[in-house]
Simulated scan of single mutants.
Amino acid sequence: MKSLVAYFSCSGTTEKAAKLIADTLHADLYEIKPKEPYTSADLNWMDSSSRSSVEMKDKSSRPAIGNKVENMEAYDVIYLGFPIWWYIAPTIINTFLESYDFKGKTIVPFATSGGSGAGKTDMYLHASCSEEVNWKSTTMLNGNVTKEKIKKWLDNMHIS
């Protein structure tokens, strides 16, 4: 089975986990890059008028992605990584899921956070793709994420 590790990261935390997963699986790696990159001011969650705050308040917000996955149809399993913002995935992840046909594929979401859990992430994200997707529950990869921890998690996933 061919795997893709797709991720969105602003601080580098999710990127680190994504690279460990891709390295462990010998999978392809794809960074979800916003068409308009986020600035520090955009990411200031304490400012209710910051771009990220405004996007997260509007569940229909779909920030544009500046790059595409080539040959998405070639992948069987997509490991999808993102930080948790306001107890759910950033809305750019919904943009990603709505940009491709994942029918018949397995999606394995993983998230990073400074302390919060995944909240209603699965409910919001799964709604953005076909019901004919093998959707796994979001796994939180917080703290010191090592290759050993990643390998143990992947071994327990039993993806086939």
Results as ranks from 00 to 15, higher is better:
residue 59 K to N: 14
residue 100 Y to H: 12
residue 78 I to Q: 08
residue 54 V to D: 07
residue 89 A to G: 08
residue 88 I to V: 15
residue 86 W to S: 15
residue 25 L to S: 03
residue 69 V to A: 02
residue 89 A to T: 02
residue 51 R to C: 09
residue 34 P to S: 02
residue 145 V to G: 07
residue 148 E to D: 04
residue 147 K to Y: 06
residue 140 M to C: 03
residue 26 H to V: 12
residue 29 L to W: 00
residue 68 K to C: 05
residue 131 E to G: 15
residue 122 D to G: 02
residue 3 S to E: 10
residue 45 W to P: 08
residue 81 G to M: 04
residue 5 V to D: 05
residue 7 Y to K: 06
residue 75 Y to W: 13
residue 86 W to Y: 14
residue 119 G to V: 06
residue 1 M to E: 09
residue 111 A to M: 07
residue 123 M to Y: 14
residue 139 T to Y: 02
residue 7 Y to N: 11
residue 99 S to D: 12
residue 78 I to W: 11
residue 87 Y to R: 14
residue 19 K to T: 06
residue 21 I to A: 05
residue 87 Y to D: 13
residue 126 H to S: 15
residue 146 T to R: 02
residue 17 A to I: 05
residue 104 G to C: 04
residue 2 K to I: 08
residue 140 M to I: 01
residue 32 I to L: 08
residue 103 K to Q: 07
residue 130 S to W: 02
residue 123 M to F: 14
residue 16 K to D: 09
residue 106 T to F: 08
residue 69 V to S: 02
residue 79 Y to Q: 00
residue 151 K to N: 05
residue 160 S to Q: 10
residue 63 P to L: 02
residue 7 Y to S: 11
residue 1 M to I: 09
residue 159 I to P: 06
residue 33 K to R: 11
residue 73 E to P: 09
residue 98 E to T: 12
residue 129 C to L: 06
residue 12 G to L: 01
residue 159 I to S: 06
residue 156 N to C: 13
residue 159 I to M: 04
residue 37 P to Y: 11
